[in-house]
Amino acid sequence: MSAPRRFDAMSRFNVAALALGLAFLYLPIVILVIYSFNASQLVTVWGGWSLRWYVAFFNDEAMLAAAATSLRVAAVSATLAAVLGTLAALALTRGERFKGRTLFSGMLYAPLVMPEVITGLSLLLLFVALGMERGFWTVTIAHTTLTMCFVAVIVQSRLGGIDRSLEEAAMDLGCGPVRAFVAVTLPLIGPAIAAGWMLAFTLSLDDLVIASFTTGPGSATLPIRIYSEVRLGVKPMVNAICALMIGAVALTIITASLATKLSGRRGGNAAPM
C-alpha cells in the first residue's frame, strides 16, 4: 500500500488523537521556548520579544561554569560508556557461551529500569565507603554506570545483525583477529557506537537525580544549578537555558537516530539473502 493511501485511510478520530497526543507532549516545551524570548521580568507576563535572557545567561559566570561542567561530564562519561558498553556488547554476542551469561546481560540492563534515586544513593554510599572525594570524577563515573547499558543495548542489536563470516573472511584474507575486528566489524558497528555515545551524552546532560547524589562542592552540573535557582523562584533566564538545552539535546538525538538509520541500512544488506 502506498503512503498517500495510508494517509487517506486515517480517520478523523486518528488525526484528532495524534494532534492531542503531540500537543500534550510538546505544548509545554513550545510555551517554554516562546517564553524564553520574553522581554518581561516576570515569567508569567508576556512583554514582547527579546533576547535579553540569553544575554543574561552568557554573562552569568556561575551558570556558565555549571554548563561547562555538565558538558565535560557528559563528554567524558559518554566516551567511557561507549567504550565499556561496546566491550560488554561484544562479550555478550561474540564471546563463547560463558557460565552466567544470562545473569550478566540481565545485570547489565538493570540500570535501564532501576529508579535513579536508588542508583544515586548506592553510588553515594560506595564513594563514601571508598573515601573518594566527591566532584567531577564521581559524577562522571556515576553517569557512566547509568549510560553504558544504553550503549550496550544499541551496539548489541547492531552486532546481532552482522554476519560472523565477515570477520572470518577478513582473517582468511590475511588479518589477525584484532586487525579483522578493526578493518571489518568496527566500521560496521561505528554508527551504532556513535548513536550510543550521543544518547549517553544527552542522558548525562539531562540527569539531575544521580548528579545531585554524587556531586561535590564546585562541581554542580547545569540541572543542579537550575534546580537550586528555581527553588528561589523561577527567573526568566531559566527559560532561556532550558531552550538552549532542548536545542542541544534535540540536535544530538536527531543525529543519533540518523546514525542508527545509516548503520541499519548498511548492515541490512550485510547478508546477501
Binding site: 573472511a169 577478513a170 582468511d172 571489518v184 548498511r266
Partner: peptide
C-alpha cells in the same frame, strides 16, 4: 591460524564486506 595459511576460502553467503566497494573487496587481501 587462518591468516597465516596459504589457503583462501569462498564463503557460502559470500561474506562480502558491505562497507567496501567491489574494488576494495577484491583488493582487501
Amino acid at each position: 591460524p587462518p591468516h597465516l595459511r596459504p589457503v583462501n576460502m569462498m564463503f557460502q553467503n559470500y561474506a562480502l564486506f558491505p562497507h567496501l566497494s567491489v574494488r576494495d573487496n577484491i583488493a582487501f587481501g
